[in-house]
Lab assay of single mutants.
Amino acid sequence: SGNANTETLPSGWEQRKDPHGRTYYVDHNTRTTTWERPQPLPPGWERR
């Protein structure tokens, strides 16, 4: 039932692989990409 990797990503993020097989992350909220895995927001924090 779903990929465990995507469940731990913050809302709006997606994990992808480039043509060389390297994993990167897409932030659909800001339309940016990063090599660093995004950290889920700490409990009690809200994204503004």
Rank of each mutant, 00 (worst) to 15 (best):
T32G: 03
R37T: 09
R16P: 01
T23M: 06
E14Q: 08
Q15C: 05
S1W: 05
E46R: 04
P10H: 00
P40C: 09
K17G: 03
T30Y: 01
N3M: 08
R47G: 15
P38E: 01
T6E: 13
E7W: 07
P40M: 13
W35N: 04
G44N: 13
P40D: 07
T6S: 14
A4I: 14
E14F: 00
T30V: 02
R22H: 10
P38N: 01
E7A: 05
W35Y: 12
H20R: 13
E36I: 15
E7Q: 03
K17E: 13
R37A: 09
P40W: 05
P40L: 08
R22D: 11
S1E: 08
L41W: 12
R22Y: 05
K17Y: 08
G2I: 11
T6I: 06
A4D: 14
T32R: 06
R47W: 08
T8S: 14
N29A: 07
E14R: 00
Y24C: 03
W13D: 05
R16G: 06
W35V: 04
R47Y: 14
W35D: 04
G21W: 00
N29P: 01
Q15R: 09
S1R: 00
W13M: 00
E36M: 12
N5I: 04
T33V: 05
G2A: 13
T32Q: 12
D18V: 01
W13P: 06
W45A: 15
D27W: 00
P43S: 12
P43Q: 13
R47V: 13
R47I: 14
H20D: 15
D27F: 00
E14M: 03
T8N: 10
L41Q: 14
T6H: 12
P38Q: 02
W35K: 04
P42N: 10
P10D: 03
N5W: 07
Q39W: 05
P42G: 12
P42K: 13
P42L: 06
K17D: 06
E14N: 02
G12L: 02
T34W: 02
H28A: 05
W13C: 02
A4M: 15
L9D: 05
R47S: 15
D27T: 01
A4L: 14
D27H: 11
A4V: 07
R22Q: 14
Q39F: 12
G2F: 11
K17T: 12
N29V: 09
W45H: 15
S11F: 08
Q39G: 12
W13S: 03
H20T: 09
G12R: 05
W45E: 15
E7N: 09
T32W: 01
A4Q: 08
N3V: 07
E36C: 14
K17I: 07
Y25S: 03
R37M: 03
E14C: 04
S11G: 10
N29T: 08
G2N: 15
Q39C: 09
P42I: 09
R48I: 10
S11A: 10
E46I: 07
Q15D: 11
P43H: 10
E46M: 08
S11Q: 12
P42E: 13
A4Y: 09
Q15A: 13
H20G: 12
T8F: 07
T33I: 00
V26F: 04
P10E: 02
N5T: 12
G21C: 02
T34P: 00
G44D: 13
G21F: 01
W13Q: 01
G2C: 13
P42Y: 06
E36A: 10
L41V: 11
N5E: 00
G44Q: 13
R22S: 10
D27A: 02
E14S: 06
G21H: 06
E36S: 13
G2S: 14
T23D: 01
N5C: 12
L41G: 12
R47M: 12
R37W: 00
R47L: 11
D18H: 01
R31C: 10
T8A: 09
P43N: 13
H20C: 07
G12M: 01
T32S: 11
T8K: 14
E46Y: 05
R48T: 12
R16A: 08
Y25N: 01
R16K: 12
